[in-house]
């Protein structure tokens, strides 16, 4: 993936560029708003990571200009420590996701990978399928190898989110945000318990598990 990072904290940026490189992504870095805007306009990127507070040009105004030019590259907004965490304003300006510092790198990585995929039209599918597991979004049914699986409404939404991002790491925070619509960190292993219940329903009695726990990051559904 080709990523544009607009971040004025050069130390943090250096680490991020290196970590993204290790994850197999090419990252271009701009240290101020004007340079970042120029780079965003001159090249195509898969994802942009834009800090809110930037010298010379504010992060939100960059996103607004890009959207006004019909540039729909997915944008992850970073908001700095101590700033008023105005997620709503960030998303309203055209950002696609919002992450507050300090954050774990795995969280950031999972989010940008999901964002990049979101740009693809796969979301419009009415059926998701991973291995022998099929989820019908319209009929609201799930079956594995032709065998029907009964899920609670919340479990269905959980599986739906995982399958929409099949093959990608989904963090616990992302699940909480997208399935329960709450933006906080649960202290205990709440999500894990839900996942193990879900796992019991879809993987029990099958030799090849589909639902995988990615240590230190989150979950992934894949063959």
């Amino acid at each position: 993936m080709k990523i544009l990072l607009i971040e004025d904290d050069t130390e943090a940026a250096k680490y991020l560029v290196q970590a993204l490189d290790e994850a197999g992504h090419v990252t271009h870095h701009a240290a101020d708003g004007e340079t970042g805007m120029a780079m965003a306009e001159s090249m195509d990127y898969d994802v942009m990571i834009i800090d809110r507070m930037l010298p010379r040009r504010d992060g939100l105004s960059i996103i607004e200009s890009l959207r006004a030019q019909n540039d729909n590259t997915p944008v992850l907004i970073l908001s700095a420590l101590g700033e008023v965490d105005d997620r709503v304003a960030g998303l309203r300006s055209g950002g696609d996701d919002y992450l507050t510092k300090p954050y774990a790198f795995t969280e950031l990585l999972a989010r940008i990978e999901v964002l990049a995929r979101r740009a693809n039209p796969a979301e419009a599918d009415t059926k998701y399928s991973v291995g022998g597991l099929t989820l019908d979004r319209l009929a609201r049914t799930v079956d594995r190898d032709g065998e029907n699986i009964l899920l609670q409404p919340r479990e269905f939404r959980l599986l739906e989110y995982l399958m929409r991002h099949a093959g990608q790491v989904v963090t616990r925070t992302m699940l909480l945000e997208n399935v329960w619509d709450y933006h906080f960190d649960p202290q205990t292993n709440v999500i894990d318990v839900h996942m193990s219940r879900l796992r019991a329903k879809i993987d029990r009695g099958h030799d090849n598990p589909l639902l995988h726990t990615i240590r230190g990051a989150g979950y992934m559904i894949r063959e």
């Binding site: 420590l81 101590g82 008023v84 965490d85 105005d86 997620r87 709503v88 507050t100 300090p102 954050y103 774990a104 795995t106 960190d185 202290q187 230190g216």
Partner: peptide, 29 residues
Amino acid sequence: VIEESDQLIRTFNALLLIARVEAGTPSGA
């Protein structure tokens, strides 16, 4: 180490959130 630092980040976030809530300017209206 990653788990431990995640816990630290959580603690920091909680501290920041408390500070913001007490200052009366939390996120969201």
